[in-house]
């Protein structure tokens, strides 16, 4: 408010001196009641924009600082993948070492283990966590009692709101040697197994807890898409003699296809970072052979062993694969379905 008189007098002082008559472009809020106002700067120039909207621009300063410091500076900070880094030194490293760290991780057998673990865990997660919400949404859609449907939705959304730490704690309690799963195993005459310490069980544990946590919440957008399908399409399908299954195949599924494609792209984009926090909470040296993923490996290399450059090189590789995945998924979706994220 205090700035108002200043800007007004500024506008006054420029009046009459300018040579161009500028109407605000469409969508502009007229800053002053006087429509025939004149200004010095030509419309469309930065100078003009800054004069008119400097208050708006002032609002972006803090958010822009956030993006520059905490998002873009770390992007540039990736140069330490090609530079020698010293703790306490510059965050951009000391001197160039070329591709030394890249060659190092490419010839590191552990890197290839964690790389394939990442692909397998990401692939399995996608395989289950992408289609299951569609199935659950179709089933929920068939529930006729509104109250029952709302209750079912509330219950299935719940796990989404829990901290990853709580999810991991629940998983461990379920799988404890004295926990419910082992009680069932013993009831069928089996031997109690410390699942959480068995490398061969890790993928099953990871994917099923992921299903438990995400599938309910994943139905939201599909349920919304289902309500937008025109009832007349079902009517027409029935007239043509389509049964329930054919109605689902020819009307329902095409109706939710755009939603499905969008979510698939989003899932592909986060493919490389799949469940990193959960892995970090659930794994242990005994399960490293199947559980260790790229991000946990670079976390141990960088944060725990202080090999920052080596870890940054791996992280950069991971991020680049992520970009390639999301850009190509978006490209394919634009080609095939006609819509993408951008």
């Amino acid at each position: 408010m205090a700035t108002e008189p200043a800007s007004r007098s500024e506008a006054m002082s420029t009046r009459g001196m300018s040579t161009t008559l500028d109407d605000p472009p469409p969508g502009t809020r007229p800053a002053r009641p006087d429509p025939g106002r004149r200004r010095r700067a030509k419309p469309g120039t930065w100078r003009h924009a800054l004069r008119r909207d400097w208050q708006l621009y002032s609002l972006v300063i803090l958010p822009l600082l956030f993006f520059l410091i905490f998002r873009y500076a770390p992007m540039l900070g990736n140069v330490i993948a090609f530079r020698r880094f010293e703790p306490g030194g510059s965050i951009f490293g000391e001197s160039w070492v070329g591709l030394r760290y890249v060659e190092m991780f490419l010839s590191d057998p552990t890197f290839w283990t964690v790389f394939s673990n990442t692909l397998i865990l990401g692939g399995l997660t996608l395989l289950f966590c992408f289609p299951l919400p569609i199935v659950l949404a179709l089933l929920l859609n068939e529930v006729r009692s509104r109250r029952m449907k709302r209750f079912l939705q509330s219950v299935s959304y719940l796990p989404h709101f829990l901290s990853m730490v709580i999810v991991a704690a629940l998983v461990m309690q379920m799988l404890a040697i004295d926990g419910p799963i082992n009680q069932i195993v013993k009831a069928f005459g089996g031997e109690a197994t410390p699942f959480i310490q068995k490398a061969e069980w890790f993928r099953t544990i990871f994917v099923s807890s992921e299903v438990w946590q995400t599938v309910g919440w994943g139905t939201i957008l599909y349920l919304a898409a289902l309500t937008t399908i025109d009832e007349q399409l079902y009517e027409a399908a029935r007239m043509d003699g389509a049964g329930r299954w054919r109605q689902i195949w020819h009307v329902t599924l095409p109706g939710i296809r755009p939603t499905a494609v969008t979510l698939l792209i989003l899932n592909l984009g986060t493919f490389m970072a799949t469940g990193f926090e959960k892995v970090l909470l659930l794994y242990n040296p005994l399960t490293y052979p199947t559980a260790d993923v790229i991000t946990t490996y670079l976390y141990r290399m960088g944060v725990e062993s202080s090999s920052m450059s080596y870890a940054a090189a791996i992280g950069l590789f991971e991020a680049l694969v992520g970009v390639v995945l999301i850009v190509s998924a978006n490209f394919i979706s634009r080609r095939t379905v006609g819509t993408g994220l951008w």
Binding site: L64, F67, R71, N78, I91, G269, L298
Partner: peptide
């Protein structure tokens, strides 16, 4: 504000961070 000059650029400043992230290690160092 659709009329704002540089708006597209400002939007991309935000969206780009969704596509490419600096990563754990540089962030930690920072």
């Amino acid at each position: 504000k659709k009329h704002l000059k540089g708006r597209t650029g400002l939007i991309w400043v935000a969206i780009f961070t969704m596509i490419f992230s600096g990563g754990l290690i540089p962030q930690y160092v920072l």
